[in-house]
Design a binder for these strands. Structure first.
Length: 329
DNA sequence: CCGATTTGACCCTG
DNA sequence: CAGGGTCAAATCGG
């Protein structure tokens, strides 16, 4: 087990390394590929070892009681095993759909407040394209402090609405970027507790930040008004700005951030992350695997010094969850 | 006083 | 017409 852990930690270091050198090597695809390969190799190795350990255990130990007997001792009784085996709770998939189109749409005017003279057909088109630019995350609610809202995501949001949603026990909160007016930032997010798991928020991000990612005031001067829409699609720069930020936070942050990003259609989570051209499908799948593992590692080993709240999150039973849920309700 | 939140009303889409 | 999304006045709080 120690070997596996050190492997995981090594992988994390590689990821951090890559992140730090990313600005310098961003335009050197072959270097990027090598780095990604190294990382995925390490975590692929981890996964293999985990699978082997699990199989060996299953082979030697007849199943005992339901839900516990076929799991290695070091994982028995912990929900982390579920996460390893079913990393849909950890793996992220990000759907950018037509980011470029959406960015263009968003940049072309105010969000939500459609031009009064817009034709109905145009409004529909705009809406649909806008809707495609949605990234849905599942975020574990904080166990400490304010459990009513998801953890900081690095941006500051201002709530502008809340609505009861049909078929949902919990209302949906509507947030827009605090700097919307000052910086013409179109980013919005919706936050809703899951019906069947009040300790998980489904956070849907819409639009991309044109402000910086500061949680206070933006450090960049206000951007000039976006250019009028043209035939050429703008590159999805804003959405790219979100991803590296998340990468950094995923590695460093504590619990609460067991993201699983789903497709907007609400289908089963896919063990895949779109990395873009230059990386083959098999690599991307393995890449996703390691992302899941890093989150797990992060949760297990980087969970804050003084409290074991992250462990509570991992190891808490459903019963506890239910109790806590009732308390907060 | 100013910015954030709340909440009922309104708008738009399907 | 129902439901989701947004607006904006009222209210809150630092």
């Amino acid at each position: 087990m120690e070997e596996i852990v050190s492997l995981i930690l090594h992988g994390c270091k590689l990821v951090k390394n890559l992140e730090e050198t990313l600005p310098n090597i961003a335009n050197q695809p072959h270097v990027l590929i090598n780095s990604c390969d190294d990382i995925s190799r390490v975590f692929g190795n981890v996964r293999e070892k985990l699978s082997t350990a699990l199989q060996e255990y299953r082979h030697h130990e007849p199943p005992m009681e339901v839900g516990g007997g076929s799991v290695p001792e070091w994982l028995r009784g912990s929900r982390s095993m579920d996460m390893v085996l079913h990393d849909e709770q950890l793996v992220l998939h990000q759907q950018h759909g037509s980011d470029a189109i959406a960015s263009q749409e968003l940049g072309s005017g105010n969000v939500g407040a459609l031009a009064p003279d817009a034709t109905p057909s145009l409004q529909r088109t705009r809406r649909r394209k806008y809707e495609e630019d949605r990234r849905t995350f599942r975020i574990a609610a904080p166990r400490m402090g304010n459990t009513e809202i998801p953890q900081e995501d690095g941006f500051t949001w201002r709530k502008y609405g809340q609505k009861e949603i049909l078929g949902s026990r919990f209302p949906r909160g509507y947030y827009r970027c605090t700097h919307q007016k000052l910086y013409n930032c179109p980013a919005k997010k919706q936050v809703q507790r899951l019906d069947n798991d009040p300790y998980t928020f489904e956070v849907t991000y819409r639009g991309d930040h044109t402000c910086t990612m500061s949680s206070t005031a933006p450090s960049m001067p206000p951007q000039p008004p976006p250019p009028p829409p043209t035939e050429t699609l703008a590159p999805p720069t804003a959405s790219q700005a979100v991803v590296p930020h998340r990468l950094s936070m995923d590695i460093n942050r504590s619990v609460g951030d067991l993201y699983s990003i789903t497709q907007q259609t609400g289908q089963a989570y896919r063990h895949q992350i779109d990395i873009g051209s230059g990386v083959g499908p098999s690599s991307s799948t393995r890449y996703a695997d390691y992302l899941g593992v890093t989150d797990l590692v992060d949760t297990m080993f980087n969970s804050g010094s003084s409290s074991n709240n992250s462990m509570e999150l991992i190891f808490s039973t459903d019963e506890e969850k239910k109790d806590d849920g009732e308390k907060t309700n």
